[in-house]
């Protein structure tokens, strides 16, 4: 594990903690896309099936368990919690997320490293994660005035992706036979989706203004 990978994982962890803080403590999920959260729950559920089949490290196992638990907890809060579900912007969060799932699955059936059950699901989770942020970005664009916690949440998610790219570059130069085209390309696509958001986030931060996205 290198410093970039650790920084990426910690950004990811921190982004989820911010979201849990908002939902659990403030009892609000305003500006948060349930569609994106459901996609993340599906991403983790299909990717971390290997929790039962292979052991990498205690760190990996604990992180996987946290990501699984937190993603389903957030979906539960937004759907069923008496107070939280009332703050959900249902009418604005209209992205047809089901239309992302089928193409990602077909792509995973066609483009993968090995045609095994776990490997195809792992690949599917990579493709789906790459586009899972789309409903959230669309919702931010629609609400325009983004509250601080939601803005920071998306920023740290994007930071996590950026650190992973640095991690891959580092590993490519320091390890032998380290190349993972599928992971890299889906990771690059995913990070590129944040570029526009990053621009406005940094701009609002430098001017110490509230984050506002253009219409």
């Amino acid at each position: 594990m290198n410093i970039f990978r650790l920084a990426g994982d910690m950004s990811h962890l921190f982004s989820i903690l911010l979201l849990l803080l908002k939902i659990h403590t403030i009892k609000s999920c305003a500006g948060v896309s349930l569609k994106t959260q459901e996609l993340y729950a599906l991403v983790f559920a299909t990717r971390y099936l290997d929790i039962f089949t292979g052991y990498i490290s205690l760190y990996n196992t604990l992180m996987k368990m946290f990501f699984l638990w937190s993603s389903f907890t957030i979906v539960w809060y937004m759907r069923y919690h008496n107070v939280v579900r009332r703050s959900y912007d249902k009418d604005q969060d209209t992205f047809r997320h089901y239309f992302l799932i089928l193409p990602c699955f077909i792509l995973a059936l066609l483009v993968h490293e090995k045609f095994t059950f776990l490997e195809v699901l792992w690949t599917f989770s990579l493709y789906l994660e790459a586009v899972a942020i789309l409903p959230q970005l669309v919702l931010l664009q629609r609400t325009r005035n983004v509250d601080n916690l939601t803005g920071h949440y998306v920023f740290f998610l994007g930071a996590y992706r950026s650190f992973y790219i640095l991690n891959w570059i580092y590993r490519y130069f320091t390890e032998q036979n380290y190349y993972k085209w599928i992971t890299w390309i889906s990771g690059l696509v995913q990070t590129a989706l944040y570029a526009d958001f990053f621009y406005y986030y940094v701009k609002s931060w430098r001017n110490s203004e509230r984050l506002q996205l253009p219409a």
Binding site: D50, Y178, K180
Partner: peptide, 10 residues
């Protein structure tokens, strides 16, 4: 030790 067999990233 080869890294391509197992997925060691999250």
């Amino acid at each position: 030790q080869k890294s391509e067999e197992k997925h060691d990233e999250l």
